[in-house]
Design a protein around this nucleic acid. Structure first.
Length: 233
DNA sequence: ATTAGCCCTCAATAATGGTG
DNA sequence: CACCATTATTGAGGGCTAAT
């Protein structure tokens, strides 16, 4: 896997061989030398974990994602969300997919006739349009007789990108660049303890400090608690 | 090329059984 | 007896195919 994974913290592409998970331990198996796993554990790969910690993720509106009835629609939402990112501030304010490409990306089989392809995808397209994620979509054909689908971002998509941009700016200015005030004495003892806890669960120190500044302490404590559960699933 | 009906798959819910 | 886990049932959605 060369050139497929970008490290946010390292600011470079990763060419190493790596896997998403470092280690998987199933329930009842030996966890460490003496401990037996009380449920299934998943250890995220270090690169993956680092990027999560750096918030190098595409923010998705999980509630919206869940609300989508059609699974094709929800997958489209993920894909288009990323693509719309690339489209902002460009002259061309829409994106275009070959149907054949979409077939590889979506949980669908390639149809022989355009009518079938349309009734395959349009219910999902309409759902996204009705909920405002796209403003409209259109079918077309290129010179090689390949079917194309055009998507225009809707209000919901634009809102999402706006929100994401603000969050990124917030984190970069307030959470990342170590400001002049960013000494250890800046934190209370309680906060230091909390940071240590975060570091224990593999959050990088700089991110942990950023979290402490930007979020309520109790919220973070709950969050740590939740992670201990989430790990097991 | 398009439409409609049948069949298969998957997932959500209900029912059953096993355990503290 | 209550609670959790496993199994059975049902329903919706999508693919395949035959008829138009």
């Amino acid at each position: 896997s060369v050139g497929t994974f970008y490290s946010k913290e390292g600011k470079r592409w990763v060419d190493d061989n790596f896997s998403l998970y470092d280690r998987i331990v199933f329930k009842g198996k030996e966890l460490t030398n003496s401990e037996i796993a009380d449920s299934n554990y998943l250890f995220l790969g270090s690169w993956y974990l680092q990027n999560l910690n750096s918030f190098y993720v595409k923010p998705i509106d999980y509630n919206y994602f869940k609300s989508l009835k059609n699974k094709i629609a929800s997958r489209l939402y993920e894909i288009l969300g990323v693509k719309f990112y690339g489209v902002r501030n460009k002259k061309q304010d829409f994106i275009c997919y070959k149907y054949s490409t979409l077939c590889q990306l979506l949980p669908i089989t390639r149809k022989k006739y355009i009518s079938m392809a349309k009734q395959q995808l349009n219910p999902s397209n309409n759902e996204l349009k009705d909920t405002g994620f796209i403003s409209k979509y259109d079918w077309g054909e290129n010179s090689r007789k390949e079917w194309l689908i055009y998507y225009w971002p809707g209000e919901r998509a634009k809102e999402e990108m706006k929100r994401a941009k603000i969050r990124i700016v917030d984190l970069q200015t307030e959470g990342y660049l170590p400001g002049p005030k960013r000494g250890l004495e800046y934190f209370s003892q309680e906060q230091k303890d909390l940071i240590d806890k975060l570091v224990e669960i593999n959050v990088s120190r700089i991110t942990a400090e950023g979290l402490i500044i930007n979020y309520d302490q109790q919220l973070i404590e709950k969050w740590i608690e939740a992670i201990h559960y989430a790990r097991a699933e």
